[in-house]
């Protein structure tokens, strides 16, 4: 987009004003993330600039404190289990849903996606009541089941979207050449939809990794996750260690984003879509 040669002076002015507005909005989007990262290296426990000096002390605190380390381990265990379970269930369902003439497709899809839309507090309270009666509150299993329910919609959406561009003749060709259905899936379908599956799995991971509400309701002190630890930290006494944890989480988000973007571009290339 450049100024057209026939543009009037007002148009030219507007062109720059418009770009300035967009730059401000993009700054608004990225500024909080950029501002909080350096603060985590502040030598003093303040949250403002100019910083009197640089230090690693909040990172040392993060990596040496038992509370933060247990929270980190809990987050990893729960998020990895959730990712495996959600990917398995989600990919199976997406394969079924993308077959033509699936009965009541809109209705079934609506139910399967609803955990993404229903306010998390309602989900968490419902699970809190229900899981209490079957002894699942305050357990890792309870949290993994809750997170899986919240995460599967992302897997279903991403994998279904990948499958809409899938050429089923390839699967038929595999079957015609004598491969059993499982072999067709693992040797033909899965390699082709793998970018979508991995994106979905990363979304599932991020959903579990970010969740604080269901942990508040159905987790006990034993299942304290990283976001839960941050939440109580902000509520009680905001300590700079939280900014160190936040910075680490932002770096992790960069990694997730980069992976998903690379996968998306790769799958677009494979499908012949211009990047």
């Amino acid at each position: 987009m450049a100024v057209a040669p026939y543009a009037s002076p007002v148009e030219r002015a507007w062109y720059y004003v418009f770009r300035a507005i967009c730059a401000l909005v993009l700054l608004f989007l990225i500024a909080p993330i950029l501002v909080i990262m350096p603060l985590s290296f502040n030598a003093e426990p303040w949250f403002t600039y100019p910083m009197p000096g640089w230090s690693w002390r909040w990172y040392e605190d993060f990596f040496s404190s038992d509370r933060w380390q247990i929270a980190l381990q809990n987050s990893i265990v729960i998020a990895v289990s959730t990712t495996i379970l959600a990917s398995f269930l989600g990919v199976l369902a997406a394969l079924g849903l993308s077959r033509s003439h699936f009965p009541w497709r809109a209705l079934v899809m609506g139910l399967l996606i609803s955990p993404m839309i229903v306010p998390v507090v309602i989900t968490a309270v419902g699970m809190y009541f229900f899981y209490a009666t079957i002894g699942l509150t305050g357990s890792y299993l309870g949290l993994i089941l809750a997170h899986t329910a919240l995460a599967t919609p992302f897997v279903v959406i991403t994998v279904t979207a990948t499958l809409t561009g899938f050429d089923y003749n390839l699967a038929r060709a595999g079957a015609g050449l004598g491969a059993a259905p499982a072999r067709v899936f693992f040797r033909v379908i899965l390699p082709l939809i793998l970018p979508g599956v991995i994106s979905g799995a990363l979304f599932a991971f991020a959903t579990s990794w970010d969740d604080v509400v269901t942990v508040l309701f159905i987790g006990s002190a034993e299942q304290r996750t990283l976001p839960r630890q941050m939440f109580s930290g902000i509520r009680e006494q905001i300590s700079p260690t939280i900014t160190a944890a936040a910075t680490l989480l932002i770096l992790f988000a960069v990694f997730l984003l980069a992976t998903v973007e690379l996968l998306r571009r790769r799958s677009e290339r494979l499908r012949g879509v211009r990047v």
Binding site: I33, V212, M230, I234, I250, A253, V254, L257
Partner: peptide, 16 residues
């Protein structure tokens, strides 16, 4: 990037 950053991290950033 903000989209992928945890909701709690962004809320923390605003609190700060």
């Amino acid at each position: 990037l903000p989209f992928w950053t945890s909701l709690l991290v962004r809320t923390t950033a605003w609190v700060v």
